[in-house]
Design a protein around this nucleic acid. Sequence first.
DNA 1: TAGCAGGCGTTATATTGTAACAGATGACCT
DNA 2: AGGTCATCTGTTACAATATAACGCCTGCTA
Lengths: 166, 166
Amino acid sequence: MTFATAFGRDPFRPHDHRRCREAVRAAVEADCRERGLRLTPARACVLDALLESHRALTAYELLDRLRKAGLGQQPPAAYRALEFLVANGFAHRIERLGAYVACVHGGASHCAAFLVCRACRRVAEAALDEPEQALAAKAESVGFQVERVVVEAEGICETCGRAANG
Amino acid sequence: MTFATAFGRDPFRPHDHRRCREAVRAAVEADCRERGLRLTPARACVLDALLESHRALTAYELLDRLRKAGLGQQPPAAYRALEFLVANGFAHRIERLGAYVACVHGGASHCAAFLVCRACRRVAEAALDEPEQALAAKAESVGFQVERVVVEAEGICETCGRAANG
DNA sequence: TAGCAGGCGTTATATTGTAACAGATGACCT
DNA sequence: AGGTCATCTGTTACAATATAACGCCTGCTA
Ligand SMILES: [Zn+2]
Ligand SMILES: [Zn+2]
Ligand SMILES: [Zn+2]
Ligand SMILES: [Zn+2]
């Protein structure tokens, strides 16, 4: 398990984010073609907004983007695009923030752990294997059927820590 | 790690919940005396409401209790009581639900994992040790300072599963 | 051409949570 | 006793997040 972008960069440190953006965007387009999903203008606009940085954005921040692009005016426009992106594994909802990030792992839906900086709201994502399994095993031994696991570590990223401590 | 009440009962199955309630309530009272905390009528009312079952209750459901008890009329009354209970480790917020449960482990603040039934909203809590540590270790190797870890497994409890599947 | 499903526009409303200020209470000191 | 301070509470007003419901349009297909 590592907290990194699709290319092994630490999303909390400066990096060539254009590569993140373009790689994920291309992977999503390919996946949609393959699976017969429609990446409509509104959905693409929301995805692009999420891909501008590793910051989590709220539905209303995304709605602003839709408005500016002339692709939607009301909350349901944003929530519908998000529903599509989350359902298909292209974005994740950060429960702790009530906000959304693009998935850097592309493709099928999966279980992830997040580091969430409470100062800058940037998010790092790690694919999750064993924590989920240990939990699910314990749970199912009690008859509980696990459908989804949320793992979010809230704290302070290195950049914000430096800024605060001088 | 086990998902159980303070007495080893599975909170998703029928059990003598009066023992849960009374034991936790007594533990909280003792802890408040020890630490010089004030379990005021409004705070006790909210705690008692949470202790009526293992279901997560929203702030507004708790506000109803305060209203019926004549201990508060407006949202801040509920949120203030919850802030006290959560800050002192007597209750937990379930991020996935925007709702609150009483802590069955009593005492000092700690990190927990939850099983959350999306049908009945009952919640089981397990004290968390190694998952938190693996995550925190990885995170801190990247310079990320973890302050709090949220682990919530959403799914269907045995009782609700039986009800659905016949 | 008729029907159907998916996507979207729009209105209205529900749900969850806070900011800000003022009044009350009780502990503690002089 | 009177002053002072911190904490707790009451109240108004509002912010932020999310959904229900209805109807239109478009593209596909039977
Ligand atoms: Zn990047
Ligand atoms: Zn940061
Ligand atoms: Zn119980
Ligand atoms: Zn259940």
